[in-house]
Design a protein around this nucleic acid. Structure first.
Lengths: 206, 206
DNA sequence: ATATTATTATACCACTTGGTAAAAAATATG
DNA sequence: CATATTTTTTACCAAGTGGTATAATAATAT
């Protein structure tokens, strides 16, 4: 695909996509500030000028990495929204989250949360962007619940806004639990507890 | 109290307690790694050798600060455990948390969570200590629910362990919500939603 | 007054941070 | 071949990191 057209100068020895994947895992593991350019260049097997040539800056690299993250590892979050009922949306969301957060192949925790909850003043911009992402997620869930209410699979007296905040709060709390070392069984039990209490209709157990 | 017996050498110009309070607020605002010794010394109006003489190291200063934090700002968490019923424990816990997290006098967020969710490898020790603190909190809540079950104000078929994890997850998720900018009204509505679903007995809607 | 003691202040340490300038190497085109 | 082009490599930068040795200073005890 990119081998057909060979440029004119010295060939670059790294594949930007795989390098980005490596960066994603590093940021995912140690957060934005907790990951240094030195660690990144070493893990990616790239010299710093090449990295800066390809990605511009540490901030930009992180932004590209987080896009990869959202398109890949946590694509299931966006997909859950298109389930048929509000109950199924939440079911898919929380059960998949439990699995995702305890997958041994993944770094513990969520990249949108880790290391950007608090930070020094240099990372303030990135922190704000992560806040915006989390808010957008909550907003999307709220819209989905409003739709569900219109479609009748959520009670008339339910508050979509509060329910959205509730689910997001559970989701983000589960992330902390995963960092604390919670097992898949524990997170699954937690998710099922939430589903049990979900406002009818849709509150059929199992 | 400390004015009666005046030491022999040059008098120290700072009060360790108020200095510690300042350090607490800084760590609270920007996390462990996000706060530098330079910022600390400047805010405390102390030179570095004095600070190291009084507190030993950055790690130690943080530990002292977190003790202050637990004994002061979030003492209500421990106090909530001695409420009469499980329902009242959770009620006091979550409603006070909503108020605490949106108090304009406080930095946004919880010090036991902020900046220690992920970190570089130098802060790994502090991160672990915070994890332990969070686990201890969950454990205490679980024990309280076991007691409640024995006293009959929690159903026989309830799972104290899962309920404890549930409440702690909500609590920690609320912290993230506060960082995201949630208002007191929003967090209160969230807390009341949780209380509505609390397993009877104790599930009387106020 | 003078020695003693405990603290403050200044200057500094080695190391790491994100970021870059300049030179060297590898390819394609003429 | 030589030349143009693009990359890698090496070396470096100023600023900041946590932490400390040394000297100045201010109080008390003799």
């Amino acid at each position: 695909m990119s081998e057909i057209k060979r440029g004119r100068g010295r060939p670059s020895k790294f594949d930007p996509e795989t390098s980005l994947q490596i960066a994603m895992h590093l940021f995912w593991s140690h957060g934005y500030e907790g990951t240094s350019m030195a660690e990144l260049t070493e893990a990616m097997n790239i010299n710093k000028p090449s990295l800066y040539g390809a990605f511009g800056s540490k901030e930009n690299l992180f932004r590209k990495a987080i896009e990869q993250y959202m398109a890949g590892p946590i694509a299931f979050v966006g997909e859950a929204l298109s389930e048929k009922t509000a109950y199924e949306v939440v079911e898919k969301l929380l059960l998949n989250t439990a699995t995702f957060l305890t997958d041994p192949a993944n770094p513990k925790g969520c990249m949108v949360l880790m290391g950007t909850l608090s930070c020094g003043k240099e990372a303030e911009a990135i922190k704000q962007e992560m806040i915006t992402r989390r808010q957008a997620y909550e907003m999307a869930l709220k819209q989905r619940f409003i739709l569900a209410q219109a479609q009748g699979d959520l009670p008339k007296d339910a508050a979509p806004e509060t329910l959205a905040k509730y689910v997001v709060t559970i989701h983000q709390g589960m992330t902390v639990q995963a960092v604390n070392g919670a097992s898949h069984a524990e997170l699954e039990a937690l998710a099922k507890l939430v589903l049990q209490n979900w406002p009818a209709p849709g509150n059929q157990a199992k």
